[in-house]
Design a binder for these strands. Structure first.
Lengths: 190, 190, 190, 190
DNA sequence: AATGAATGAGAATTCATTCAT
DNA sequence: AATGAATGAATTCTCATTCAT
């Protein structure tokens, strides 16, 4: 009875938000997002209570999308380097394939518009991955540092690497390899 | 003396902008900035044509400020590790001492409101420092990568390090040391 | 039975409107009214063409409700004072027992959203009562004034009285008696 | 320096608000009020922080306006009837001369948008007048009722009276006199 | 040059009403 | 008839910028 709230429209709105935020920043007006999704301005607020709600839900979608890109095929049983390499490669591949998603994710994390609940839920999504990375990191320069630090360093190195990959696509592979080599050297001792 | 526009006021405006942007983001209204500087709303536009102009000039000021913190005492003649350690230490010291400046600098760089001219001019300021870092980096995992990459990696590692230092001040020194060790391992081979 | 639109639903809507308007004023959204009645937003417009139509019909319902509270047991054959006392007592009793109805009735009358037809129809309902009050008012200060004026004055005095009764329930009876005494003195000479 | 905030504009806004509210109710849009005052939409918010602020300030202006109409020439030293007659006459004269002000005042008082502070301040304005009315009311049907009740009754009787005066201007004087006679009979015994 | 009032183009929402299901 | 998603005009308020003083 009545039209069901369409998952398509919700996705169209999130997708439109993604594109517009990546181009114009999070201050882009909701009217443009609605137009980009092909719906009326008011319709956006049928799917998201407020703009901030849209922001938070978009964040969670992105987190899940990234996790789903990183989790499959995780070489649980292999040694640390192999596991980290998998994390590195899947993260970089995701970021290179989804530059807008990566950019908006950063904008969101810097924006102070994410609720504590969203942040928690977003971290929750990555519990598995962090656990996979955790075991056996205990060597090298970062021997005594918390896993969060190791993970944050991977993230920052990978992000920097991706920036260069995007700017010089012809050297993308070289940067990717060098980036991981640097990361591995940074945290471990062969 | 005969200069009509007071340098003091300009500085007060930039300073106020820094504080307000660091607290409220770049979308903070110009009226608040003017108030924080103790001048009238309209006066701001005697010193900066537009809000974007203010943003760009603030960016350049921050870049120069950082460079002036990193350049003096540079151990030109010492070996690479010593030089990089100096860069690391001065950068981290600056960031820890000026968290607002660091935060606003990041906000500005992510904001797509910086003109190409500003970005170029900002890079220009760091030519010297990059040159100092450049010589003799040719070893380790990043042997064949451009200095810009090496520098960007330092920046990202240092930024991550500083985030942890701020969050856990009691372990600040440990993070700082571990961060540099990681960096050095990342790029060089002893 | 064969009636498609349910009288129950119509009543539920009017009842919900009453409660919500009394709490939030006439600008309360129709969606809340529908929800309060346990029907869908759109259903409201199957029973009332527009919000204004709902307002007008609610007004008429309230008028009838009040009349039905005042009419039974009217001491037609008694003297004026007795009749007016009956009118006073039944009106006050109704108002005290139905504060929401009284409030919304006032809101509606002040709202300029009642059609002429509704106003006329509402007055029509009170023709009998006015007639009952009319006969033999010809004495006292209001000797030469139209019954409508006498009735309006009763209404305003009773409303004021009820406001004080509500605010000071412990003195309700005193106010009620004093109010009627004042009214009787106002219009008649013993 | 700079344009001073003009008292004229503030008055034009309050005046425009008065006219528009009296015709369309308190839900009339601020844009119409601004237009009616001959200023830009945004200008309204230079003079009144919010629409509610405008409402509250308008209320206070009206209260003061009424008080200024009732206070001068108050026959302090005369007997009660004379004093009440003065109050009655000045109030009715004000209401008849300013039907919009009277209507909007009622709308405001019923609106639940007045702050406690405004209500208090509005009452404060009438302290003198209430005091003048107070002394020596101790007789008649309302002998034992609080002054507030006596005053409220005057107000409601006078309002009703004015409604009839407006509807039948040719009998205005008759209604006015009859109204006061009714009031006096209501509360006192000669 | 300095001031701050004035401006008006947005911005995020709300909501009566329509209409596909 | 009932539903509730979709609509888009309307609303309050913000803010970069202009301009009279």
């Amino acid at each position: 009875m009545a039209r069901p709230k369409s998952e398509d429209k919700r996705n169209a709105l999130l997708d439109s938000a993604l594109h517009i935020f990546s181009e114009q920043g999070l201050s882009a007006p909701t009217s443009k997002i609605a137009k980009g999704a092909g719906v009326a301005e008011g319709t956006l607020f049928n799917y998201f209570e407020t703009k901030d709600d849209l922001l938070n839900q978009l964040y969670l979608e992105l987190k899940v999308h990234l996790r789903d890109a990183m989790l499959p095929g995780y070489p649980d049983t292999q040694d640390l380097k192999t596991r980290l390499h998998h994390a590195w490669n899947t993260y970089v591949a995701w970021g290179v394939a989804n530059p807008q998603k990566r950019k908006v994710m950063v904008l969101l994390m810097m924006s102070d518009r994410l609720s504590e609940a969203s942040k928690r839920s977003g971290s929750e999504d990555f519990k598995d991955i962090h656990q996979h990375m955790q075991e056996g990191t205990a060597c090298g320069a970062l021997r005594d540092q918390p896993t969060a630090f190791i993970a944050a360093i991977m993230r920052s190195l990978a992000d920097t690497t991706m920036d260069f990959m995007s700017n010089e696509p012809e050297h993308a592979q070289r940067y990717c390899d060098a980036g991981f080599a640097a990361y591995w050297n940074a945290i471990a001792t062969d």
